[in-house]
Design a protein around this nucleic acid. Sequence first.
RNA 1: GGGCGACUAGCUCAGCUGGUUCAGAGCAUUUGGUUUACACCCAAAGGGUCAGGGGUUCGAAUCCCUUGUCGCCCA
Length: 892
Amino acid sequence: MQIPSKYDASQVETKWYNYWMKHNYFHSEPDDREPYTIVIPPPNVTGVLHMGHMLNNTIQDVLIRRARLQGKNACWVPGTDHASIATEAKVVAKLKEEGIDKNDLSREEFLKHAWDWTHEYGGVILEQLKKLGCSCDWDRTKFTMDGDMSEAVIKVFVDLFNKGLIYRGYRMVNWDPEAKTTLSDEEVIYEERQGNLYYLKYKILNEDGSPPDSYRDSEGLGEALTIATTRPETIFGDTAICINPNDARFKHLKGKKAIVPICNRVIPIIEDDYVDMEFGTGCLKVTPAHDENDKNLGDKHSLMVVDIFNDDASLNSFGLHYQGKDRFVVRKEITKELEDKGFLVKTESHINKIGTSERTKAIIEPRLSDQWFLKMEDLVKPAIKAVLGENSEIKLFPKKFENTYRHWMENIRDWNISRQLLWGQQIPAYYYGDGKEDFVVAETIDDALKLAKQKTNNQQLTTNNLIQDTDALDTWFSSWLWPISVFDGIRHPENKDIKYYYPTNDLVTGPDILFFWVARMIIAGYEYKGEKPFENVYLTGLVRDKQRRKMSKSLGNSPDALKLIEEYTADGVRVGLLLSSAAGNDLLFDESLCQQGKGFGNKVWNAYRLVDGWDIDDTIPQPNSSKIAVDWYESKFQKMLLDIEDHFSKYRLSDALMTIYKLIFDDFCGWFLEMIKPEYQKPIDAKTFKSAIAIFENNLKIMHPFMPFLTEDIWHYIAERTPEEALIISKWPEPKSINESIITEFEFASEVISGIRNIRKQKNIAFKDAIAFSVINNEKAHATFDDVIIKLVNLEGINYVSEAVDGALTFRVKSNEYFVPMAGSVNVEEEIKKLTDELNYTEGFLKSVQNKLSNERFVAGAPEQVIANERKKEADALAKIETLKTSLASLG
RNA sequence: GGGCGACUAGCUCAGCUGGUUCAGAGCAUUUGGUUUACACCCAAAGGGUCAGGGGUUCGAAUCCCUUGUCGCCCA
């Protein structure tokens, strides 16, 4: 088939993606081949493709396509997660626009809206992955809220509860008052904000409630002590004042009581060395309901807990006349009131770090609440050993993340797995009474009823007496099972899929979810399969813009993925993303990289157009230059193939790609095709053509994982192929022996060619004028490439001589001297200068080498190989000096 | 405040257990090219005290100490 002069990417991409789908190449079923499995890190079901996804999934596709070419049974399982917080927030916002308040809806009604939303927007991102060329097994697409997936999650919850690993605790949690849910520590972003330190006066009472005669505050005699706080609105929750027992300034306050301004609550003054004597006034107000450290103090000293906030962080009835007002409004207003009433001593500006919600950006409120926790202490042990142990079963790429992993795992805290949300798996705990322990945990309400009857000995209970916990499980509590549950390995641990595909091979994800997800999957893997979930973890860098900002939707600095593909082709974007993204290094995204990728595609396309345009004549013999060219490229290809394998084995995909890029661009297009190119409008011999096609096919194979569309397209122009012969399922090139000497000889020859080209250029000699050429072959260089040299720079021939040629321009490669006769146009002085410069340089070089060699300690201490190399350098330099001196003598 | 990591050409990065892969690659820049595959191209050139300082060594980008700057994670 005639190849078009321009590559029409969008048409080609659609055509071949459809073809691949139609012939089911992406689908995998267990068989007797070696499996190669990747599970996708499930993106948010309602998300859209951003640069991070593109990078991530390009890498996975490269790995999976390569495995497929290597004859493995490649299976890439795609899917999405339900992203409870993000999705619920979106649904709530949408309902709000329609004038519906989430709180007016029943759970079922809300979930219906959420499912509608999921069905409408869900899966968009998967369609976008197809545009990138991702060869996922779409028949296996999973969603964390699918029936079977949810069942697995619930089953695991019940199991862990029965093992005593899940418990209910009253804990200080990060409360997002906007989403009205709990966040894990990892979902809280700490930011420095400018705030104030308010100095408040608390009046003092004797233990019996009578006012003291006198006492000191930090400024001398007075009637009150002063406390610095950043949050004056929380005074309504104060239940103690704390001083450091070692603080001489406050000794007299021991055992006394204080009166909280405005609400006039009388609270004890306690002592604890937790208090920092340097900070503020050295007195701390204790608000156990609203600060983690205060909670600890409260527990230690058995203090009252007064929660002053509603779930939206407005004040409740403890806030008295501020009831119903937002915390920040109250902060302003109460400052005014405190000032008016003389309680506010002074205000200082103060920078403090505050937690904000990763999702809603709202300022986090520490809050006490009933939560479900998973005990991590024992679960984490096999997961630490697997990554950091002697014979680690799981490898992280790059290795530097092992330290990060260790640090987190060794300081792990119990995992708060409950979320005050509707969108997610509802916690399978059923309450039958008001007591703290009046609940049972079971997979179904019927099982729960049985358990409840047993526990209460009350046979009269019915399902109507059971109320299920209203919280949902953390989304990560679904995705930590992902490598198991996508193969239904929780519900049916012996099914053939899980037995064949598990453990999976590679996991590709961002380092930002090393803990949320990767570590937890490892934990779940050992707990539920007794085995690692994957062998290698490739941690990609974050994609940043040119100003080093993380690309995010909120900043609006992420380019539209599909537009990029449209502009630079899918292959171009893939290549652009991979070219400069070593594992674990952040990638500074620049569109020009995609341009380079597209340019590479164009180069390959045109290379094929060249080959395709040749007429073949099977009557003419193969020229020697072509034979050498084929031998050389085949060896070069094999050598690079080894390099590529090595890069892949270390997950250095950008290096593998760069090796391919240079092989194709420089060696194949720049050298090989020029060597075998027939004269203008002349045919090519059949033997060379056949070799060229075979070489081209091998090139396409190694390029295919990176540039699947273009390569498949050209593959089918080369020949009519059946579906069984498609490139996507062809065979990765077999390793063959390498002729190292021909590669070295080529390198020498290319320097000769370069020397001749320089002379042509200097003297403006048109290419079509053949030139005479002589050499004094001091190096005894092989003549293998002579015919190639003659062809590439259009020589009349190569004369081997033993004496310098008069009236010629010269250049040297090592100690070989080359002559291009140029009657009349040789400037002797210039030649002398050139030679003298070269001589001076070489003599300097020789001296440095000889200095080294005459250093006894060097000769005694350095390994033999190093000394031999130095001696070789010395010999080469001496030979070159000899050549230069001879030349100078003949000129001069 | 604690931990981890980085700093090499204008940019992005490679450089493994010190020594011919030791100062490299790609891009960018400059210069020159209408060679009928490709200007999304070809040929060539310039450009770095390897963050600063100190040490170990015959020899340090590489190992050690120290200072600085930046990033990430955790309080």
